[in-house]
Structures are given as structure tokens and as C-alpha cells.
Design a binder for these strands. Structure first.
Lengths: 215, 215
DNA sequence: AGGGCGTGTTACCTCGGGTAACATCAAGGG
DNA sequence: CCCTTGATGTTACCCGAGGTAACACGCCCT
């Protein structure tokens, strides 16, 4: 008797399978095998393939689950009625808080991997792409950039997303400081603190006569 | 007679194999199989494994080849005797020019993929990690950031690397503008143009009395 | 009763990374 | 002169993971 308890059906079953997949990914990371996920769900592979088509389908469905929450949170933060600096900090904090709470899920969102090797297309994962688009849209509708607006907002959307991705990744691994400080560091960068800071004595410059030392 | 022409030996042979691997990766992208690489070299798999241990070893050796050039170029740009803005632009242009000239190699550098699923460690590929460290070092030795210097320079090294990675990736795919314009857009972001720009009329703000509309 | 439909199974295929065992040639020392 | 050493190369195989038949059970609805 392979089915002692009557398993739910249809959409419900699908949710259960996603729950199982979620647990495995939380435990083993994005590299979790279909066999492992099936075992966690108490079933075998073909059922997973019936529900999700292929691995990308499963990972995609799993990704969208978490993406929707993160994306909604970021979108909300982008439209918070705050001064611009506070709003930016709020967005940064929202993202960092999200990845802090579920690192394994975060890895899944940012490094889906299984993309077809033929395409070799987009580097930013879909989840990040959506965030980049949200930032682009927010910049376009909120900031006056003159004639360069469209190009700058598109570029900056990707740039800021990549910046926060890389910095957040490093922060998650090293935990060099509390979250609030990280938010400040990134906001400071966007506020031109790197550009405004003074030179250090020994630094290179447009130096006409400085004496460089070897190696 | 399996060896009609006397094949070179030792380090020379290794270089030949790397050349073959390079050609395949240029042609098929980072997902190239060991069989394909062996075939391109006119041999079979075990020889590759003798020379490089495993796939990571091969990809690593191949990566380091190209990394050394890119890294040296970026390092040189970081130490160019220019005003800070010009120096930053020079670094950005150096990176974009490099990835523009060899897209497939660039993909290899940025998306090595094959990392062991158990570790699930660093997101930035080694090549990018090294660039991040160079930026960190440059900031530390050139810019006066006060007591926060160490943390900020480390954070910013990663952040800027990720920013340029994401923006550069998008630029490579879409080619929305010439390289010089892209350099300007990114430098402007780092120079706080996003922070300094004015608000657009309809934008959200610290608005005390705005009437939000439902969804 | 008899279709569908959704559930589940076992068994298999393919492909890619990785390895073992064996064959060959060139060089160098007793 | 022979025989060891170290490089080249081979065929044949193992294993794990994605993916796919083909088949079997249970339920609901006509």
C-alpha cells in the first residue's frame, strides 16, 4: 500500500513539494539534487518532473516564492515617504535584513546556476534583475536627471543592484560590522564620500615631481 | 603509431593544452566539457586530468592566465598619476575595455560555476575577488577616510567591484551606449550625482499630506 | 461498471566528471 | 646492451545527476 494517508492533490500537493524543496535547499544549498528533494518529500523523482517540468522549473518556482516577498519589500521601501538619503538607507537595510534572515535562500536567488550553457546570457539572476528594474523605475520617477535620465537610471539600477549584491555577500560571509553600519557605508559611497574625501600624504596624484619608491 | 610528430613535453605541453582549452572556451563558453577540450587538443581526457588534477584545476589555470593581464591592467590604472576622478574613470575604462575585447573569457572569469556545492562559499569569482582587494588597497593607501578607513575601504572594494561587474555585464549584452559614456555614468554615480540630483514633481518625499492611491 | 485524472512506482537512458590499467617512446645509467 | 624511469598516450570503466518511459493504484464522476 504505497499511499496509506490520502495525500493532498493539485495545487496543494505542489505547495507541499515546494516546502520539501525549500527545506532541502535551506539545508544543502542551491546545489541540492532532485533525488534529495524527492527523498525529502517522501517520493521519487518523476513526480517532481510532472509538477515542475525540469530542474529549472522547480528552482524557478522556489525562487519566485521568495522573490515575491523580497521584491515587494524592496519596492515598498523604494516608495517610502522619506528624504532621499533615508529612503536609500531604508532600501539597503531591507535587502540586507532579508538576506541575513535566510542565507541559503539568498544563495538560491543570487546563484541559480543551472542556466543552459548555450545561452550564456544574463549574469544577474532573475530575482536581481527584477530588483534592478525596480530601482531603475524608482530613479526614473523620483529623480530629475535631465536628458541623460533614461540611460543613467538604467545603468544605475544595475550598478546599485550589483553593488549591494557583492557587498552584501561579503558582509554575510565575514560579518565585519553590524547591519546598520553596513548600510551607512554603502549609502556613504553613493553619496560621493569616496569622491569627496581628502588625499593621503603618500598617495599618487597628478604629481609632477613625486619620488616613487620601488615595489 | 599514436605519436607521429614528437609532442613537446612538460611545461610546453601544458601550455598547448591550455591553448586548446582556451579555444574551446572562446567558442562554447564556460560550460565546455572536458571531452570537448580534450578533443580540441587532439587527445583524451586522462591527460587533462594528469596535468590539471580536475576540472577546477584546468579552469583555474585558464582563468589565471587571463586574470593576470586584467589584474595587472587594473592595478596599473589604480596607480596612474591622475586626479582622482580621472583615475577612477581610467580604471573603469580599463575594465570595460577588457571585457569588451573577449566576452567569452570574461564569462569564464566572472562565472566559474563548478565550485563544490558543499562549500557554497564566495560569490565573487577569484578574479573579481582579487580586483576587489586591489581597489581596497588603493583606497586605503590613497584616500583619507579617518577612523572608518579600514571598514569603508573593504566594503567599497567589494561594492565597486560588484557594481562594475553588474553594470558591465548589462552593457556587454545591450550595448546601450559607447564605452566612454558608460564610464561617465558609473563615475557620476560614485560622485554622488544620484544623491545631488533634484526631485521630480510627482515623486514621493517626506510628504506630510500626500494622498496615496491604492495599488 | 467504466473512464479520466492525479497519485505513485521501478527501471532505464544519457552525459559529464573522474579513475584504473595498460601500451609506448625517449633518455640515461649499470 | 639492457633495463629502469618518466613522460606521452590509449581503452574501458565507475558514479552521480538530470530526465524519461511504462506501468499500477485510488478516487470521483457519469
Amino acid at each position: 500500500m504505497p499511499t496509506p494517508p490520502a495525500q493532498p492533490t493539485g495545487e496543494l500537493r505542489r505547495e507541499q513539494l515546494l516546502n520539501a524543496a525549500d527545506r532541502v535547499v535551506q539545508r544543502e544549498g542551491p546545489g541540492a539534487s532532485m533525488n534529495a528533494i524527492a527523498a525529502e518529500a517522501g517520493i521519487t523523482k518523476p513526480i517532481l518532473y510532472r509538477h515542475f517540468g525540469d530542474r529549472n522549473g522547480l528552482i524557478g518556482a522556489l525562487t519566485e516564492r521568495h522573490t515575491s516577498g523580497l521584491l515587494a519589500a524592496v519596492r515598498a521601501a523604494l516608495n517610502e515617504p522619506l528624504e532621499r538619503r533615508d529612503r536609500v538607507e531604508h532600501v539597503l537595510d531591507t535587502y540586507l535584513a532579508a538576506i541575513e534572515s535566510r542565507p541559503q535562500v539568498y544563495r538560491l536567488l543570487t546563484h541559480p546556476e543551472g542556466g543552459d550553457p548555450t545561452g550564456a546570457g544574463n549574469a544577474l539572476a532573475p530575482a536581481l534583475r527584477q530588483i534592478a528594474e525596480e530601482i531603475t523605475k524608482a530613479v526614473q520617477t523620483q529623480v530629475d536627471l535631465g536628458a541623460d535620465g533614461p540611460l543613467l537610471s538604467e545603468t544605475w539600477g544595475r550598478a546599485v543592484t550589483g553593488m549591494v549584491l557583492a557587498a552584501g555577500d561579503w558582509w554575510l560571509e565575514q560579518r565585519p560590522c553590524p547591519r546598520a553600519r553596513m548600510v551607512q557605508a554603502l549609502a556613504d559611497l553613493l553619496w560621493g564620500r569616496l569622491a569627496a574625501a581628502g588625499d593621503l600624504p603618500g598617495a599618487v596624484a597628478a604629481a609632477p615631481q613625486a619620488a616613487p619608491q620601488a615595489d
